Amino acid sequence: MSTLNRQIHLVSRPQGEPSTANFALVEAPVEALADGEVLVRNHYLSLDPYMRGRMNESKSYAQPQPLNEVMIGGTVGEVVESRNEHFKVGDKVVGMGGWQEYQRVNASQRGVLQKVDTTHIPLSAYLGAVGMPGVTAWYGLTQIIAPKAGETVVVSAASGAVGGAVGQLAKARGCRVVGLAGGPAKCEAVVNELGFDACIDYKAHPDLRSLSKALKDACPDGVDGYFENVGGMILDAVMLRANAFSRIAFCGMIAGYNGEPIPMANPALILVNRMKLEGFIVSEHMQLWPEALKELGTMVATGKFKYRETVAQGLESAPEAFLGLLKGKNFGKQLVKLV
């Protein structure tokens, strides 16, 4: 009797804001393994903002998510069957298993499955602090913003998995760190738990003038580096406070994920302040992942890196949890627990 695998498929392209109707729960038997393959029981599924862009058919840095196939996504789990000499039953692994309970993988392909050590680092952390979000934060901060001790770094979506990591990595480098987050509870945690120097509740500042004044108060010496996850009015407000030779790392522009226009109010400031603006995709810089993961793993294992997880229960909860992520309902890394 074969194992039954439950999967979430993308069955339609969203027109504007996505909904649960774009997804479907599908059941399929797990086929017998061929030589070189392993079967992984996924324990956690990662939900990330980049998935929204993949749902569209329009041109982007990656191919669109195909319809009527398993939705893309990072996973951590345990090998439950193996016909590959490099993996044994019980190995804990990280990969791109997608929104499904089981993943059948040709583990002979280099890089598709990585063994991880859970002695000092929890398995779920390999999807967040010691995974793609952590490396994203590390790359944007160290390679683009490249802050010096004493400089001021601002981070939008500061309570998210990436934003929280940026702030702590910047603090470790001697910076003043100011976050932006939605709501007083998130802002309080960003300061008290994650160690930021200040956090601005953008929901309390509905216009550019108000938000700019809040940034001026929180950044009396101006802004030297900005890690961008949002775009829109928040970017405009930061640019008004940016110092000469400031650097902006563009990681995400969630303000425009549903097709909304996100014009820049004062592009002339780029020239006036001789600013460096650079977008990046972390998967294009694999050569730096080992260095990033070493620092992140050490910080997590020694308790110097704090992180939160928002965990939805069961595969069927993934679509709703994903829609909540896009609206900022999560705090820290959004996961789906499958086991």
Rank of each mutant, 00 (worst) to 15 (best):
E27I: 09
V162N: 09
S317C: 01
G160E: 10
S317R: 06
Y202D: 10
S58Y: 03
I254N: 01
G174R: 15
P267L: 04
I248G: 00
A24T: 12
L211Y: 03
L296R: 04
S82P: 00
K216H: 12
L180W: 00
A292W: 08
A146V: 05
I254K: 02
M55Q: 08
D207N: 07
Q287L: 13
A62W: 14
D48Y: 00
V223Q: 06
I200M: 01
M51T: 05
A249V: 03
E316V: 06
V336G: 07
E31D: 13
C219W: 00
A189Y: 15
V26Y: 02
T119W: 05
V30E: 11
Q313R: 12
S108M: 06
Y307R: 00
D224N: 10
L235C: 05
V166T: 11
G231F: 06
H86K: 12
A198D: 15
P319V: 00
N5M: 01
A32P: 11
A244T: 15
A181N: 10
P220Y: 11
T152K: 07
I145N: 07
Q100Y: 01
L315N: 08
Q103N: 13
G53D: 13
M96S: 13
R241V: 11
L335H: 06
V30T: 11
G16L: 12
L211G: 01
D207W: 00
V153G: 02
M253F: 04
R54I: 06
K304A: 10
E320F: 05
T152H: 09
F331N: 10
Q168K: 06
R52E: 12
S210E: 14
G297D: 15
D197T: 09
V230L: 02
N42L: 07
Y139G: 05
V11M: 02
E278F: 06
V130P: 10
L293M: 15
R247M: 09
R241P: 12
P147K: 13
E57G: 07
G179R: 04
P66V: 10
S46K: 09
E37L: 02
D91F: 13
T119L: 13
V311R: 05
I262C: 02
V94T: 15
W99I: 04
Q334E: 15
L123P: 13
N243I: 07
A265V: 05
G174E: 12
V339M: 11
D224G: 03
V339C: 07
I200P: 00
G252P: 05
V76K: 01
G332P: 05
R52T: 09
G225L: 08
Y307H: 13
M96N: 14
Q103Y: 12
V116K: 03
E284P: 05
T298L: 04
S46C: 11
E69K: 13
Q100A: 06
V191T: 14
Q65E: 14
K333D: 15
Y307Q: 12
N5G: 01
S46W: 00
G36S: 09
P206C: 03
I8G: 08
V105T: 10
L323R: 13
M239P: 04
Y61Q: 02
L326D: 03
E101N: 06
A198S: 14
L141C: 09
D91V: 09
R247N: 14
Q143P: 12
V89N: 09
Y202T: 08
D221L: 09
G134H: 06
K333V: 11
L215V: 14
G195R: 01
V94S: 13
M132Q: 07
H86C: 08
